[in-house]
Design a protein around this nucleic acid. Sequence first.
DNA 1: CCTATGTCAGCACGACTGATATTC
DNA 2: CGAATATCAGTCGTGCTGACATAG
Lengths: 145, 145
Amino acid sequence: MNENELTAMAGRYREILRHAVYLVRSLDAEGQLSTGHVSTLNMVANAPARVSDIARNSGIRVPSATEQVIKLETAGLVERSVDPNDARVVLVALTPAGRAALAEANAFRNGIIAKALAALTDAERAAIDAAIPAIAKLNAALSAQ
Amino acid sequence: MNENELTAMAGRYREILRHAVYLVRSLDAEGQLSTGHVSTLNMVANAPARVSDIARNSGIRVPSATEQVIKLETAGLVERSVDPNDARVVLVALTPAGRAALAEANAFRNGIIAKALAALTDAERAAIDAAIPAIAKLNAALSAQ
DNA sequence: CCTATGTCAGCACGACTGATATTC
DNA sequence: CGAATATCAGTCGTGCTGACATAG
């Protein structure tokens, strides 16, 4: 691919991404947790995370992450604790209620997308699934820039 | 694909999409026009469009589209005129300055993505390009729900 | 009269920057 | 003391709903 072809492909990619982003965001309306909240909860699902980790992974600044975490804490979905090894660090962990809410929200969102995927042909689904690792790598390349 | 497989694929898709979302947002920081402005300008690039068309294509409500258009008009990037065939309708058209700003913003954004695409293998690029029409159809299926 | 289109007013959410503890 | 981490305060962008004017 030469530069012109790459740029044209970039335009195509941006276009579908724009639509997809909006659609994913609109899943919020029907759910209880916002997309941002679900992302944050997903981030602490496996292990407690620092506020700064959440910020970096979400692509937001630390004060914004603090705000998110405080809201989730008020809702009883996460707990904050001071890192015993470094008292500057706040560790954010899921509560049982948070784990339940996260599972429900993920099931709800995945269910909607699964229903839309069911409307595609096998070939179309295969094309998307085959592209997922490549898109993940593209995301990584964009992050690295 | 059975229901479990579809749900699992939906989860994979949501995951890469989440990353892509924040990367696209980070393109804003360095550019002059916000992603929303670029989208709106792209929409009137080929032909004048109604405010309600812009709202529908952007997935926002009419009052929000009005607000966007007024901002772009204040910036001298679009012009508003009353449709001679139906005086209720406002037609939004690009000004020359708007066309120039749009071209620059698109080139900037596409350039960043093109550079990242260049870091992928031919097979990975082909996988993404092959998935784009399928993702577009998936988007349409999600909209229809 | 009823509908369609667009605008205005007021509100809410979520991001940002800048300033401020606190700890290493 | 300087750097890192998190929080607080205040602001801004951008979406929303509800009310309203105007045209078909």
